[in-house]
Nucleic acid binder design. Structure first.
Length: 425
RNA sequence: GGAGAGGUGGCCGAGCGGCUGAAGGCAGCUGCCUGCUAAGCAGUUGUAGGGAUAAAACUCUACCGGGGGUUCGAAUCCCCCCCUCUCCGCCA
């Protein structure tokens, strides 16, 4: 959520910067509501002030056993007016809030202006395209031939966009989760969190999924709860409403959770395989940062996610999302894209964002500067990494002509020393 | 799910419908004092939103789990909801 004060004082700039996200918007409605609210406030507060002093007087008169009926009847009317004004202010604030809640974050000035994903500049590349002496297969093919991926049975249970892994396929997923968590906790200094996988709507509001993107979420019938679409939601909202010590920043958390997404509107996209699922595993990185250092923290966080791919030996590139391709809550986002030989292209495997104080304001997460007033802090997060897509990358990059898959060195200790996944004969 | 107890400031803990943003204590900060430490004395310390200001100072309003109600006036009375704790039931 944007700061209404900032919007008020910089309305033209806000309009201009938001417009770079695409689409047009008009903040005149917001401006009018804000002005109305403030003038109503001035009016009602003056009345309340009067009521307070008169009420005190009435108290005195009564104590002295004097007649207060004139003041009493006068105040009856005033009170009714205050009540009506308060109701009007309430409505005004609700309307204003509703508008603010659906306004996206301002892109950071460092974000390239562009209309869509075709205008995302490549920021860096690591490794190189692996060469095969044969035509590499897509992961679905590799996995099904090995008997470790079973989409047919998953479909029987749950329909499209679900998967089932078996034997070394299930083990590989588990190994990846443990490997990533260990890397981030031991080497990068993050604290592991195992959060709830269901949260209240308040939490979804805090990180920006609600009210605008409810269609993408699975809601629990009869409850105010939703299945989380990412660990970002529970982990960021973990400190909702809190005032943290300045010295404790940055707080760095890593969390494994399954993620549940409806993928509404993606019909026909990635219908096959593990790329786009209603349920997938992810290890997430979340930071609560001092505003002064949040962009340094974004670089570090992105590097921490990249490290996973480096250790696994997977070729990838980092792109900076342009203004037109950024998510609703983000001020700046890097996507990490891994090379998939079976598809012959880079695919997103991580998205690392700085939300500045956008989520902190919604979720009311602050810190106390030494001796000063509480301030909103900055929140960041990134996938470190999407586990299913990492498994896809491994199957595609380390497949061999005979259909087997070499297990990356870094994962072997998590797989009982297994070096190669072969078809069970 | 059933029964009971409770939710007040950073913490503990008072609080007759008006003089309570809220006693008292602890913690914190600022002075003073003591050779050091400890103690002592005085003062001070919440959040949000308006107004004012270059920014402050200043000023107004609201806030005692949340929401409604009664009243000129509610932390205090009434109703609904939420949460925590204890006991019972159920369960991993």
């Amino acid at each position: 959520m944007l700061d209404i004060k900032f919007v008020r004082e910089n309305i033209a700039e806000v309009e201009r910067r938001l417009a770079t996200r695409g689409g047009s918007l008009d903040l005149s409605n917001l401006k009018a509501l804000d002005e109305k609210r403030r003038s109503l406030l001035t009016e009602t507060e003056a009345l309340k002030s009067k009521r307070n002093t008169v009420s005190e007087e009435i108290g005195k008169l009564k104590k002295e056993k004097k007649d207060a009926s004139r003041l009493l009847s006068e105040m009856q009317d005033e009170s009714a007016r205050i009540k009506a004004l308060d109701a009007e202010i309430g409505g005004c604030e609700k309307e204003l809030n509703d508008l603010l809640l659906v306004l996206p974050n301002l892109p950071s000035p460092s974000v390239p202006v562009g209309k869509d994903e075709t205008e995302n500049p490549v920021t860096r590349v690591w490794g190189s395209v692996p060469e095969f002496g044969f035509t590499p297969l897509e992961h679905t093919e590799v996995g099904e031939r090995l008997g470790i991926l079973d989409f047919e049975r998953a479909g029987k249970l749950s329909g499209a966009r679900f998967s089932l892994q078996k034997g070394p396929g299930a083990l590989l997923e588990r190994a990846l989760i443990n490997f990533m968590l260990d890397l981030h906790t031991t080497k990068h200094g993050y604290t592991e969190v195992l959060p709830p996988f269901m949260v209240k709507s308040e939490a979804m509001l805090g990180t920006g999924q609600l009210p605008k993107f409810g269609d993408d979420l699975f809601k629990i019938e009869g409850w105010d709860h939703y299945l989380i679409p990412t660990a970002e939601v529970p982990v960021t909202n973990m400190h909702g409403g809190e005032i943290l010590e300045e010295e404790s920043l940055p707080l760095c958390y890593t969390a494994y959770t399954p993620c549940f997404r409806k993928e509404a509107g993606s019909y026909g996209k990635d219908v096959k395989g593990l790329i786009r699922q209603h349920q997938f595993n992810k290890v997430e990185l979340v930071k609560f940062s001092h505003p002064d250092t949040s962009y340094d923290e974004l670089e570090k966080l992105t590097n921490n996610a990249e490290e996973v791919l480096k250790e696994l030996g997977l070729h990838y590139r980092v792109v900076t999302l342009c203004t037109g391709d950024m998510g609703f809550s983000s001020a700046k986002t890097y996507d990490i894209e891994v090379w998939l030989p079976g598809q012959g292209k880079f695919r997103e495997i991580s998205s690392c964002s700085n939300f500045e104080d956008f989520q902190a304001r919604r979720a009311n997460i602050r810190f106390r500067p030494r001796g000063g007033k509480p301030r909103f802090l900055h929140t960041l997060n990134g996938s470190g990494l999407a586990v299913g897509r990492t498994l896809v990358a491994i199957l595609e990059n380390f497949q061999q002509e005979d259909g087997s898959v070499v297990v990356p060195e870094a994962l072997r200790k998590y797989m009982g020393g297994l070096e190669i996944i072969r078809k069970k004969s």
